[in-house]
Amino acid sequence: MNLQFLADGVVMGALIGLGAVGVTLSYSILRFANFAHGEFIAWGTYMTLVLTTAISTLFGGHTGTIGPLSFGWPLLVAGVAAAALTGGLAVALDRLLFSKLRSKGNAIVMVMASFGASMALRSLLEFIFTSRPAYFTRDIQMAVPAGLGIRLTPDQFFLIFLTMIIVVVMDRFLSLSATGRAMRAVSENPILARVAGVDVERVIRATWIIAGILATASGVMLGVTVQIRPFMGFDLLLPLFAAAILGGIGSMSGAMLGGLIVGVAEAVAVQIVGADYRAAVAFLILIAVLLVKPSGLFGVRE
């Protein structure tokens, strides 16, 4: 049996996982399901695209590529800058919209507001860039053997490696830094956190920034391996929610594992029933989790 599909599933799963970590953090700290998270992914990617083009143009297009990868350093620099900008976008959206509704204490109105914001942000991308797909690069890469008869492109190797680094950094950040501690505290018990001296508004800002950074990483990975479209984030949203709920809301490792499971399950489904119904896999996983164990694999609350 050809296991090649597993490789694509793992790469897809890694980027779903990164997005889902952002979803699970913002869900557990802000206490609502943010439907605009997909738009952070798309905006982060388009900003990376614009900045990459700008940097390359600035250097007269002579920036070359890094070793065997399909892209050069401008993409990495642009990605970092776009991640920061996307964090800023999330904070701005919170300031303009969510913070005004937060005081009213109705989570479902915030879900609705995020749904409206997602529609507006996505359509704005469509207005600016049209719905035609864009690409970081159009080069075709040669895949190299990675064992078990699986071949990976150098880009895929790099992205899996990058995901691992991000996961380790995030894990260290959450378990050891003061901000990470404060985030865990607010996620478990916001009132006690305030009593203990945690500035919840500051934690919320940090959470949005992290969500924006992870969304950008996830989107750029998708942009490098597939393509860039205004709907790219919207189409990822259901897999992200499925992964976050499967892993257990609030659990970072759960979201990452959930992402991998969803990504690989999609790849398996494509093998069995074809690509047409790929997007339904996340829905089936979601329904199964809600039926069997709504708190998810590592969840502490439903």
Binding site: F35, V111, F241, A242, I245, I287
Partner: peptide, 10 residues
């Protein structure tokens, strides 16, 4: 409540 939103979206 938000699980209903996510599932209906799905």
């Amino acid at each position: 409540a938000d699980y209903l939103a996510i599932t209906t979206f799905g």
